[in-house]
């Protein structure tokens, strides 16, 4: 089996029904398990972004990216490894308040992990921490003795380290192509 590593894909698409399915079936077909996924609007009206992480090898992932881009409603898909991006996830921890209050070093624990308290009730306290998976997991381990009732975390979000904004370039190219299409009645028909 070729060397496996964690890849991050970002997929930019039109915002339309069934888009996520169109992307996920490409993983299904190759029996690739999606580790996490997050979907959101971008700053550009009508364009949505999916961020997907998956363990695989580079050759497979390059094919997957091209097959995703081939879907009509997909604008552009990019393949990254962790070195190419700054990435984060967010985690929420619902912990027994009583148990937490018995903790002698609660302050240092929260400070050390850079966590925030979102809500406190007599029953439970909700903490929030953003970070990389190993960081959110480290806090989870430390909170476990106090009874973690719920632990949830988001999919990954990321920005590239590259100074070039490839999506913007792509959109500019398409605008030029659109102008050319309507200037030349024969083109693209």
């Amino acid at each position: 089996m070729p060397a496996q590593q964690l890849f991050t894909l970002t997929v930019y698409s039109e915002h339309c029904v069934g888009l996520l399915n169109q992307v996920s079936i490409i993983f299904t077909r190759r029996c690739l398990n999606i580790e996490d996924v997050s979907a959101s609007r971008t700053t550009i009206e009508g364009i949505h972004r999916l961020t997907i992480t998956v363990w695989s090898d580079r050759e497979t992932m390059e094919k997957v990216v091209k097959q995703i881009e081939k879907r009509i409603d997909v604008l552009k898909a990019f393949l990254y490894t962790d070195d190419d991006i700054i990435y984060q996830e967010i985690a929420l921890y619902k912990v027994d308040t009583a148990a937490l209050l018995r903790e002698q070093y609660l302050e240092s624990l929260i400070r050390h992990h850079g966590a925030r308290i979102l809500d406190i009730t007599p029953e439970f306290t909700v903490l929030e921490k953003a970070g990389q998976p190993w960081e959110t997991e480290a806090l989870l381990e430390q909170l476990k003795p106090y009874g973690v009732r719920q632990f949830v975390r988001s999919g990954r979000v990321c920005v590239t380290k590259s100074p070039v904004e490839k999506l913007n370039m792509y959109l500019e190219e398409q605008m030029l192509r659109q102008q050319a299409t309507f200037l030349n009645p024969e083109s693209n028909v």
């Binding site: 009509i72 409603d73 604008l75 398409q174 192509r177 659109q178 309507f182 693209n188 028909v189």
Partner: peptide, 12 residues
């Protein structure tokens, strides 16, 4: 109206 352009799809 016939379609001639989709920004996410370049057929030629």
């Amino acid at each position: 109206e016939k379609l001639r352009f989709i920004r996410s799809y370049n057929p030629r």
